[in-house]
Design a protein around this nucleic acid. Structure first.
Lengths: 204, 204
DNA sequence: GTCTATAGCCTGATAGAC
DNA sequence: GTCTATCAGGCTATAGAC
């Protein structure tokens, strides 16, 4: 209850995070200056240093903020009722929709995978991805007993994310249509692929 | 035969590209300075401007250089002999091995997907990816007549690339083993998934 | 908690000698 | 074709008034 505000907890500190996130998502750590952030927030550059000791701390706080809610919302998509097939369908549909609706999160995720140092990746894994990953892995295990669940869980995520990652370039590749960016179409495709409908030559 | 050297064709110009590529791959465009590149090449910063008019031109030339050979080597993995299943196996195995052996190329590819402007992405698509993509799409079409070939072709690439993209963070996720980074293991997993062995519950 | 002013360094790029 | 020297401006971060 004490009105303590250790760096990052004040109201302005939250605004700074919310305003800096889209900048970091679009231009990356090195591509965003403290002046850019200050301008977006509407305060002077010096004021930023009252809330965060340096640029790196601000960045790490912004990342933590961006990923904080994701863990639970991804995991809640899984649930644990119904058959594995039903749970797969539910997960893929929900995860695809969530990723479609948050381009900034996707960009930050890919940037962290590219540039995150050991410490940041460990933090990200342990605070965000471990729990949902466990649930996906559990689902993978039930679906394919003879397949490495870790590999399959990664494949499930990659299958969805890569369609968004390539959104910009697919415009220039043959057969690229608007509907390929529709989360419903992507989800249906991924589900049918994962349920083995494609290789076996039967229906989707 | 005339010894013309329009910027970028001299010997030093090639060395500049080769030395700058790993820097751009690891730190991105904004994370690398002209001085960094000059130091890596072993010349002064000013000398760089004799070969390329500015940083952006150098970067674009470096990208073109990095992607130049890839198109044919990816495509050659496909060939057009054998059954679709055989061609799939050949493609996945070869593509996985190629990606495993070239982390810099992977990083550059992901950076371009994140940061490439319309012009660069169009160039990349038309000069590098269109032809191999067509071949993969053709293969996808033969394998699954009732499935959107464009979607399936993207899925095939993403299925492979995401395992490498997550190499660093999988260390901290449950069930992550060294063998999951082995291109042979990844390829085998992807092939068995694509041939429908997983969802149908039969073995790989 | 925010401001203006500024230190000190790094940036992309140029000038001109050799 | 490469060098040294340099410019003009941007960068992170700090000092000190309010």
């Amino acid at each position: 209850m004490a009105d303590k505000r250790p760096a990052g907890n004040s109201d302005t500190a939250q605004v700074i995070l919310n305003k800096s996130l889209p900048l970091f998502a679009r231009s990356g750590y090195a591509g965003v200056s403290m002046r850019d952030i200050a301008k977006a927030v509407g305060i002077s550059g010096a004021a930023l240093y009252h809330h965060y000791p340096d640029k790196q701390s601000l960045y790490v706080a912004a990342m933590a903020h961006a990923f904080a809610d994701k863990a639970s919302s991804i995991q809640s998509a899984l649930g644990n009722t119904g058959s594995p097939e039903q749970r797969l369908e539910r997960f893929v549909t929900s995860f695809t929709k969530q990723m479609a609706s948050d381009p900034d999160f996707r960009a930050l995720l890919h940037r962290e995978l590219l540039d995150g140092d050991e410490k940041r990746l460990k933090l990200l894994a342990e605070n965000v991805f471990i729990e949902p990953f466990k649930a996906i892995k559990q689902l993978a295990q039930e679906m394919a007993l003879d397949c490495d669940a870790h590999l399959l869980a990664i494949s499930m995520a990659g299958l969805i994310l890569f369609h968004f990652e390539t959104q910009a370039i697919r415009r220039y590749l043959p057969g690229g249509l608007k509907k390929h960016n529709d989360p419903k179409v992507i989800a249906q495709h991924v589900i049918s692929l994962l349920t083995g409908a494609i290789g076996s030559g039967s229906r989707q």
